[in-house]
Design a protein around this nucleic acid. Structure first.
Length: 284
DNA sequence: AATATTTACAACCGCATGCTG
DNA sequence: TCAGCATGCGGTTGTAAATAT
């Protein structure tokens, strides 16, 4: 029943990796790269499936991975990024050099989620009331494994080349991604799939976004959150999606310039800008 | 000291997506 | 256009270590 396993399980080892296996994998990849994960285990002399090898490499053995516990700054960054990006762990990881999506996901589930709820409990009643509303909506959205960030997901926040693993033997490390903010964010316009699919969810100008979201909530699928929900009603050619991309790109560029000094401004800027964008959207 | 519970994290699973022929 | 394949991604599980009782 169900889909067949990704590879032939018979005779393949599972579970924790031994030092010898790690060495075999590292040596092989250092010499040959990993153009084909499925073929790699055989070639490297490993009794593992390709998927397992890929995971071990990307989450543990890659030389650019920062080991050790998360700093308070990193944890803070994850919390803030999670507010914006939700459970898009790879997108969050792309903004934390040396950290993997798996690692971030783990720390979120084991520590930060609790830390968040603790800090919320300490907030003033007014704020608490406000956050209750948001957390309630987040809770609802959590059913779909997505946060209350639909407004920002309209913007293609994730650098598309963070998903590009074609340069396998020299894995793209995060600072490389960050050095190319414009291309990374603009490249989202070339991802035809999400843009193509947006035509299915174009809405009429007479409906408010809230109503539309409400109307679609029950039928919504995961792609909803990455789809563009609307197009300009005036028929003009300007691409609002690109404009939003540009807004975010400029924020990210600024962030890269200033992050070494103080990143707090980014979040203020990001949130206020996102609010502005939402206002613009609802006015349309 | 023994046992139970919690925490941390590596690894697995299955679906989604992009690419290619 | 479509099917098959490779890979990325996020949710979940398993388990060892740490901590509490």
């Amino acid at each position: 029943m169900g889909r067949s396993p990704c590879c032939e399980k018979l005779g393949l080892k599972r579970g924790p990796w031994s030092k010898e296996e790690d060495d075999l994998l590292i040596n092989y990849i250092n010499k040959n790269g990993h153009p084909n994960w499925r073929a790699l285990p055989k070639l490297a002399g490993l009794l593992r499936c390709g998927k397992s090898c890929r995971l071990r490499w990307t989450n543990y053995l890659r030389p650019d991975i920062k080991r050790g516990s998360f700093t308070a700054e990193e944890e803070d960054t994850i919390i803030k990024l999670h507010k914006v990006l939700g459970n898009r762990w790879s997108a969050i990881a792309a903004r934390l050099p040396g950290r993997t999506d798996n690692e971030i996901k783990n720390i979120w589930h084991t520590r930060l989620k609790k830390k968040m709820s603790k800090s919320q409990a300490q907030e003033t009643p007014e704020i608490q009331e406000e956050t209750m509303k948001t957390s309630k909506s987040e809770e609802n959205l959590d059913i779909h494994s997505e946060p209350d960030n639909s407004n920002l997901d309209i913007i293609h926040l994730e650098p598309e080349n963070s998903r590009d693993d074609s340069e396998i033997s020299s894995p793209k490390i995060n600072h490389e991604i960050q050095q190319q903010p414009s291309s990374s964010t603009h490249s989202s316009s070339s991802t035809s799939s999400s843009e193509d699919s947006c035509s299915n969810t174009i809405t009429t100008s007479s409906e408010s976004l809230d109503q539309i979201m409400l109307d679609n909530l029950l039928e919504v699928d995961y792609d909803f959150w990455s789809e563009v929900l609307w197009e300009p009603v005036d028929g003009s050619n300007h691409n609002n999606d690109n404009n939003l991309d540009l807004s975010l790109t400029s924020l990210e560029e600024n962030y890269q310039i200033n992050s070494s000094l103080d990143d707090n401004w980014l979040w203020d800027d990001l949130f206020s800008r996102s609010n502005e964008l939402m206002l613009e959207l609802s006015e349309l």
